[in-house]
Design a binder for these strands. Structure first.
Lengths: 216, 216
DNA sequence: CGGGTTATTGAACGGTTATTCAGGTTAGGC
DNA sequence: GCCTAACCTGAATAACCGTTCAATAACCCG
């Protein structure tokens, strides 16, 4: 019956596919370079459908931001639950930032988001939400460590702010493939700051970049 | 006849005016939102002239980047020569980053540059050059302090990298007007990191977040 | 099974914008 | 003073791209 057209899944499925395609295109071409055609092509649908579901290109971009948020939350949760104990967890964060996966592409996406947030309210809200969430996670790990007595910080709030900002700053260089900046270096540099900020004792500091390291 | 047209200064003057206008427009509208018309309007000339001098919109944007570099160099030089001694100089850098002037707008321009650098080679080169210059200045101050014995760092190179990255990271929040981030907080947060990284002795750390400032 | 609503398409439309161009104006060497 | 080349302009051109639209197809419900 009714010779199967290419795809006739639930409209929700198509909608989601378009959203995912949008993110993929933005990742590759940036917000400014993303056209309706690109999205349609990446999603395997027509331009018309993109507009049908989201009203406009801007609408599709905006909707994709909330998907981005959701996925970020999810992944963050999943990632941090893998590891227990303040020090390993902090270390894990250091490595997460560098990203063993396609992190460079992800950081580029964040850069795009920052710039878009300058002028687009939806993007501003998304990036603020993302940032708060991220900083909250960091904050939580720090509090955990303070409570356990393995971290020491005179002003934890400021330390968290600085560590979060440092990661963003380092990420810029990673995203732009600054010569000399690698994921390994990223992790190392950030971790050293964390050690400094939080007075982590050598015992807890298990993973050295190379060679011995001590404190006193 | 031919009543005097508005302006017939040297073509170099117009060229420069267009370049300056381009930067101004990019600052306000971003690279993506900058149109030839905007530049012409801001420069008080015709669209034709913009293209006449620079060949294309992309050409004008590219040319404006080198002007941006030049002006940055100049201003950096001028600014840092004002202050002597490692500690005051470092402190000055902390305040420069926060910017007592239109720094928010400037940081937004840097954000724009970063994103453009992802895909545009000219922008990439410009930002790398700018960044090296900036980091070099920081590095110089740090070396000065190490030589004078007022700073102590086990890995100065890493410290410089981190301090530079931290400034970028904090700048993002400043540029995006993150609630709670002010120029004062910016300076304070960065300065504390500098103190921590470089083991600045309390004597040198003259400026509290508020209160008087003096030197030995 | 109909009939109406929802999805989906591809082509047509229209606005915006970079670029081209033909024609003037200015400046400076001769 | 005049001639040529550099400068400058505003309008015409043309391409690109978001959006609209009329026509189908699929789905759902009674």
């Amino acid at each position: 019956m009714a010779a199967a057209t290419l795809a006739a899944k639930a409209p929700e499925e198509r909608r989601g596919r378009i959203l995912r395609a949008t993110i993929a295109v933005v990742r590759e071409r940036g917000f400014a370079g993303t056209r309706v055609t690109d999205i349609a092509e990446a999603a395997g649908t027509s331009q018309g459908l993109v507009l049908y579901h989201f009203g406009s290109l801007a609408g599709a971009l905006a909707a994709s931001l909330t998907l981005l948020e959701d996925e970020f939350y999810e992944e963050l949760e999943r990632n941090l639950s893998e590891v227990v104990g303040p020090v390993p967890r902090l270390r894990h964060i250091a490595e997460l930032g560098a990203g063993y996966g396609p992190a460079v592409g992800d950081w580029r996406l964040w850069l795009e988001l920052w710039v878009r947030a300058i002028r687009d309210d939806g993007a501003r809200a998304a990036r603020e939400s993302l940032d708060n969430r991220w900083r909250g996670a960091l904050r939580q790990v720090v509090d955990e460590g303070l409570a356990a007595g393995v971290f020491a910080a005179s002003d934890p709030k400021a330390s968290v702010l600085r560590l979060a900002a440092l990661m963003d700053g380092l990420a810029i260089q990673l995203a732009l493939a600054e010569p000399g900046m690698t994921t390994g270096k990223f992790t190392e540099l950030w971790w050293q700051s964390a050690v400094l900020e939080l007075g982590i004792s050598p015992a807890g500091e298990k993973t050295g970049p190379a060679g011995g390291r001590r404190k006193k």
